[in-house]
Design a protein around this nucleic acid. Structure first.
Length: 329
DNA sequence: AAAGTATCCAACCGCCTACAC
DNA sequence: GGTGTAGGCGGTTGGATACTT
């Protein structure tokens, strides 16, 4: 039996997403929420397959995604988790809430794999191969253990968390507002698809145009060319602006951008927008696929449980240390 | 400056699983 | 229980960019 394609491939567009497509998708998701991807191309008129829409959202448009360089801590976490879980990128990504599985996978394939390979062919080959043996032995044990214990452990940790909630740095919360986000602003790529902040610039520009055209109404499509121009001019300035906001979908509605047929009936300042985001972040992101950070097991606790309880008792802490120390930065 | 090579990463492909009927 | 479908996942590709010669 041959599986039919997820959608009719004929007439479906492929390749990089355009700003307009992104806005249409974001606008649709703000109205309907993520999910039911099959209906997205039909309802939005996007000539994209449902999978493509889902991927674009989860890997790029979804709020809370951190882009740019991986920190040392993130890097060591990936190495540790990959050693324990294998190439289960989605599982690994669940412990790095701001990173997508695709990002982690790419980072592993392009950076970490090479680093580890370099290490393995290094001078301390003997020690490395010893660690590799330990790793191959421990992986199965740990997978089993993880399967059986992870739920219990998480429950316990969540209970502990509910007693003393850690202060979550706003810069690390699931809500990503890219103003002052150095990692985002670092990206100086000129291609549209490589920069999330372009979406915010786009929307910001669109808002500006909305105000400008309030008296003489025009459709989003009509003002789109101006918006692109505004985004481009912002982009060329090079320095990040405090007004660059990565907009979750529902925000767009608040500002009046509903669909191609909607009127531009509201306009608010960016400060107001930030306040709105702060006030509504719990609502805005509650149904995202990524876990809420408040319900996410903190990495330090997870690591502690993972490595102290297991590795130490099995005399394997050297493996992890060896791996993390071996990663030259 | 131009050509060749390496690297990065967004997006696609195909397989698998869960679920509805 | 069997079948069809949607969504999720990991592997891979290809275009763009960066770097080297």
């Amino acid at each position: 039996m041959v599986r039919p394609p997820c959608c009719d491939k004929a007439g479906m567009k492929k390749g990089p997403w355009t700003p307009e497509e992104d806005i249409i998708l974001v606008s649709y998701i703000q109205e309907h929420g993520p999910g039911n991807w099959r209906a997205v191309p039909t309802n939005t008129g996007l000539r994209r397959c449902s999978k493509s829409c889902r991927l674009r959202w989860t890997n790029y448009l979804r709020p809370g995604i951190k882009r740019g360089n991986f920190t040392d801590h993130e890097e060591s976490m990936i190495i540790h988790l990959q050693a324990l879980l294998g190439n289960r990128w989605a599982a690994i990504a669940s412990y790095l809430p701001e990173r997508t599985d695709n990002d982690i996978k790419n980072y592993w394939n392009t950076h970490l794999k090479r680093k580890l390979a370099k290490l393995q062919s290094g001078s301390d080959h003997e020690e490395v191969s010893k660690s590799s043996n330990i790793r191959s032995i421990s992986k199965g044990q740990w997978e089993r253990r993880l399967q059986t214990d992870i739920h219990t452990a998480k429950q316990a940790l969540l209970e502990a968390l509910s007693l003393e909630k850690p202060n979550i740095d706003s810069s690390q919360s699931g809500m990503s507002m890219n103003y002052n986000d150095s990692s985002a602003s670092e990206s100086s790529s000129t291609s549209y698809a490589s920069s999330t902040e372009n979406i915010s610039r786009l929307l910001e520009g669109w808002m500006r145009n909305s105000r400008k055209t309030e008296s003489g109404r025009c459709t989003p499509q009509q003002s789109f060319a101006d918006t692109i121009a505004a985004a481009d001019s912002n982009s060329s300035e090079g320095t990040p602006s405090n007004s660059h906001i990565t907009l979750p979908g529902r925000m767009v509605s608040k500002w009046g951008f509903e669909s191609s047929t909607s009127d531009v009936s509201q306009s608010i300042s960016l400060d107001e927008a930030v306040n709105f985001l702060n006030d509504h972040s719990n609502i805005l992101f509650q149904d995202e696929s990524k876990p809420n950070l408040e319900t996410q097991v903190p990495l330090s606790m997870f690591e502690k449980w993972l490595f102290e309880d297991g590795m130490v008792t099995q005399g394997q802490e050297g493996m992890i240390d060896g791996l993390s120390l071996s990663v030259d930065h």
